[in-house]
Design a protein around this nucleic acid. Structure first.
Lengths: 334, 334
DNA sequence: TATTTTTCTGACAACGCTTTCAAGATGATG
DNA sequence: CATCATCTTGAAAGCGTTGTCAGAAAAATA
């Protein structure tokens, strides 16, 4: 261990040119005579030279990295989005650096500070509880893309989707299939998303002239297990229902298991709708009707928009929408 | 945008001390008189100073980052492991930096080079096709932990699990339940894991005196869709079977869906066993019998072992094993 | 109190690269 | 062939830290 790496200066010496020239060849900053270029390239491969990114960042003031704040890297939801970001960044010279906020506003703020001290050139914040003010403040230094909120500020672009409308559509779908007793498994109510989805659910019921029965609203925390528990709770309440709209797919998975364990069939006995359209939802038995979130595309768009901002171009964030995907977990009641 | 950040020198000036003193306070490198310490701390918070990591890395030669090469950050399998690594690293001062190899040996080698040019202090390589030689070569410069292979080299620790034995155990479990026609959905055969799992499957059949019927071995690629296809293929072959052992959970999910679509019940008509024990497997309907991979613990162990190596301690990689987890997707044949 | 340790502290030289700046080389123009 | 614009190139000054060195201050010892 501890063999030394070669430096730009060694390459220069090996090739018989000055360090500046090597740097110029590396960055294409200026024209260089072919003979020297070749000598340098030979020296580079001979010494298997790799530029020291820390030194480059320090000298140039640009690290060519993008900080990405997620909440939970292991969740399939964020995974998709990260893939999108990686894809959107590929070929631009920028590399993503991920950090986890674990759904804790303090932690998120700390992680963002860490990313910034790591000299990231831009920031992508995927939802989370960090305050708008903090983001606006940071945006004075580096461009920021934030998803899941509506926020107007200089040097900051936000991607927002209308969760309430989508939730209304999902519920509306069940209503149009003849369901009258529709249960809802809500997400944590300190999440704006969860609130919006709950509001959408209620709005659809009201629009259809159906009563809102609080006993049909169970509280979950977006985890599978909470979906299982929610169904137990709904069943224990002894209010009958023919459909469940879960505020995310993971809770729908849990609900599906709980129903299975009680011998209730989906969709014959209970129709089930989720939210997110995680990759797995296609493979659920039966495939899950859900709201498709364009997570992957959003990742791509976030990356591209941020790069545009870094290049000084006017950002043109594309329009993105949630849409209902009807599969086999819902059926017409008769 | 483009407000300047404060530097150590500004802090020093503000506090009326030399930059060296500020550095010493930051790093606890030497004792400093309390009065100065307080002045510096006041200056730091006044200027909301954050040390520039790039400069620290350049000056100290240590970046306090660990490079982690995964294959696919969005896969639940890697997600678990990354969480473990993050957990194992928390509190050590080291931060993980993730890179994706996308199951391409060339790409992997490239990503590793990139991580190294980013001055990572250590490397964790989660499986993949990069050559042993490449890893051994890199280990001359920085400590490496690699999973999924048996490799002995200085400054390199490998975590290896006996996939063949576990696959034998899984198959054996089905045999002991009275199954005689057991199908296998294999993973991509250029993966050593897949080969080992297939070998374990065959070994168990042979040990039980059962014939190996190639028509009962379908080829998948570890994706859910390939599990769906594999079941179609097995069914089309018109050789009856009462159980399926899939080489990973994701293909088992696909198989479960395909069976559902054909009206075949799990476990009443077909018993199903997976491999990995992804978080979701507990929530499959029915919960999936599978081989538990200690992915999360492995992540923790990899991180801790690597940090030990970085601190010059003798690494003590813990023993880890695969184990069969029996749930409801398998049942005794009668 | 004089002397020796021990503790603090500031100067200053790295770390490996980028980026002026200005000079030298080359080519185009009249 | 002289003159001026354009390319190439190297020297040198940073970028923001750390870490060594040596002097200054404080504490301990004689």
């Amino acid at each position: 261990m501890n063999e030394k790496t070669s430096t730009l200066e060694q390459v220069a010496r090996e090739a018989g040119v000055s360090p500046s020239t090597v740097s110029r060849i590396l960055n294409g900053t200026a024209g260089v005579k072919d003979s020297k270029r070749e000598a340098v390239e030979r020296a580079i491969s001979k010494l298997s030279y790799q530029p020291n990114k820390a030194a480059q960042a320090l000298a140039s003031g640009r690290s060519m990295t993008i900080g990405v704040l997620t909440q939970n890297i292991a969740s399939p939801f964020y995974g998709e989005c990260l893939e999108g970001i990686e894809k959107g960044l590929s070929g631009t010279g920028y590399t993503p650096i991920f950090a986890n906020g674990h759904w804790d506003a303090k932690e998120e703020a700390h992680r963002i500070a860490l990313l910034i001290s790591r000299q990231v050139d831009g920031l992508i914040v995927l939802t989370g509880g960090v305050t708008d003010a903090t983001l606006v403040e940071h945006a004075r230094r580096i461009p920021i893309i934030v998803t899941g909120r509506q926020l107007q500020a200089p040097n900051l672009v936000s991607f927002w989707l209308d969760d309430a409308a989508a939730a209304r559509e999902a519920t509306q779908h069940l209503v149009s299939q003849g369901h009258q007793q529709i249960a809802h498994i809500a997400g944590p109510l300190d999440h704006p998303d969860s609130q919006a989805r709950l509001a959408g659910y209620k709005a659809a019921l009201q629009a259809a002239g159906l009563a809102i029965d609080e006993r049909l609203i169970a509280q979950g925390d977006y985890s599978e297990m909470s979906g299982v528990l929610a169904v137990s709770q709904l069943l224990a309440a002894r209010v009958s229902f023919s459909a469940i709209f879960a505020a995310n797919d993971q809770m729908a998975y849990g609900a599906r298991l709980a129903l299975y364990q009680r011998g209730l069939r989906v969709p014959e006995d209970v129709s089930l709708v989720g939210f997110d359209d995680l990759p797995h939802s296609t493979y659920l038995a039966p495939p899950l009707t859900t709201i498709r979130q364009p997570t992957f595309d959003m990742g791509i768009a976030a990356a591209q928009t941020l790069v545009d901002m870094l290049l000084g171009k006017a950002p043109e964030p594309p329009e993105m929408a949630l849409e209902l995907v009807v599969r086999d977990s819902t059926r017409r009641l008769r």
